[in-house]
Write a protein that binds this DNA or RNA. Structure first.
Lengths: 258, 258
DNA sequence: GGGCGTTTCGCACATAGTGCGAACGAGGTG
DNA sequence: CACCTCGTTCGCACTATGTGCGAAACGCCC
């Protein structure tokens, strides 16, 4: 059928199809009918129905008694919540972020280090102090140019950092972005000593960010708490901000450990 | 290999396996290694690696450069968020719920009707006014015994209600639960007329709940907003509560439509 | 009743998925 | 340095597994 010889060659066909169905249905706010799915995937009716039946039986998809449209089901919900939970975005933790936001009058971020990615787990902001436009809740790249990104790198040893840089070379996002590996490593050492990371106009012009590490009960750095302010205000407020993120990170860590 | 002749017989094997892997990994906060997954599924190494590769390539699973553990990846996050979004649990809507909670001093609920299920999309509560213990965010049954459940049924025509009752017969949860189809249908008519549903100790003893319908831009009833209070307080406060949920439902509907 | 869209069923074919075993690679340890 | 162990990939042979086609059973609306 469809030539499927991408990179390596591996890839379970029917599994890929099932996953693609999930994505299709997820992208359709009002659901899709079996026929629509079959058509968009270029599959036969029969095959599609069997795939859908599998998904339906496991509650990945659901539908209304009379209706013919498939929508995402409760298992997807459970998976999403499990991930949310793993990302530490629980109610008590959110309260800490809210308190931080109120205290410093700036958007507060919770990021969690996942694999080689950084997950923006939660943002606490307000109309008066809105979040950074470019930074959405979800997964994000830009490791070397953000305060929490540098914190993630600093949590690894030299070999780990090197491995990471092989896959994601530091790009120049603004005039101040660090793109040299040696300079980056120096700064990471400094960050390890301070247990605090700062970024001034390295990610976005006019903005600065300060982040402190969140630790698991075992002491591993699993994420960061940060706030971002106008770059021009940063110098004057740095002591206050440092105190705020250190305190926030400590509180989040504490609530994590129990 | 493993005999797999459950109910009907349909069910794509490799698809089911992939889905089960997702659930396994989702349930393991710190991730799983390939070997662990292989063992728990009773699969060969080779097969497991191929399945994992598929999941990994599509970003359903991720892992850290050095690490050997698989964790849920960004696609799962996206699916979860897509569902959250479909469930209307967005920030502006949450604000409405919070305002309701503050106004009436009781936990406020947002439920969305999905297929034959009711999804509890959001709960706004506080230490002073905590949520009902038995009712968690996520999907829930108990359609006939809750205010929002009755609202869901009332949004269907007689045939739709009948179809639903075939699959989920009304169980007696408390002494006041309605278990008779005729009585239920009478009440649904009343609810359709009032555009408001009330439940007093039908779901849990000592508790009462009042719910108003949320409508889509097209005018379809897609969910409900509700608050729950102590049953003994209900009569005295009913006018205030009715006003609050009607107002909340209206606001949510408005924010939905844009 | 006749048409239409959805869903299920049966069957024949060969592809796609599987399991086994072995090779490869990277650490770690004596 | 040779020897582990553990994680990952490769090759291959086999057939179970998934597939497509066609046709039949619903359920529904005009």
């Amino acid at each position: 059928m469809s030539a499927e010889e991408r990179h390596g060659g591996a890839g379970i066909q029917s599994a890929e199809r099932v996953l693609r169905i999930l994505e299709l249905v997820g992208a359709a706010p009002t659901g899709l009918t079996a026929a629509e799915i079959a058509q968009r995937l270029g599959l036969g009716q029969s095959t599609t129905y069997r795939l859908l039946a599998t998904l339906h039986r496991q509650d990945y998809l659901a539908r209304q008694s009379g209706e013919h449209r498939y929508i995402l089901g409760r298992t997807v919900d459970q998976l999403g919540r499990a991930l949310q939970y793993q990302l530490v975005a629980t109610d008590p933790v959110r309260q800490v972020l809210r308190a931080m936001h109120d205290a410093v009058g700036a958007p507060a971020y919770l990021t969690v280090f996942r694999g080689d990615d950084i997950a923006v787990a939660h943002i606490e902001d307000s109309a008066a102090h809105p979040r950074i436009g470019q930074l959405h809740v979800g997964f994000s790249e830009a490791s070397h140019a953000t305060a929490f990104g540098k914190l993630m790198l600093a949590s690894r040893d030299d070999a780990g950092v090197a491995r990471f840089l092989e896959r994601h070379s530091p790009t120049r996002l603004t005039a101040s972005s660090i793109t040299d590996a040696a300079a980056l490593n120096d700064q990471l050492d400094e960050i390890r000593a301070q247990q605090l990371a700062v970024e001034i106009e390295e990610y976005l012009p006019k903005l600065a960010c300060i982040a402190a590490p969140v630790r698991s009960a075992a002491g591993r750095t699993v994420g960061a708490v940060s706030v971002s302010v106008q770059a021009k205000d940063f110098a004057a407020r740095s002591t206050q901000l440092e105190r705020a993120v250190r305190r926030g990170a400590w509180q989040v860590s504490a609530r994590l450990s129990g």
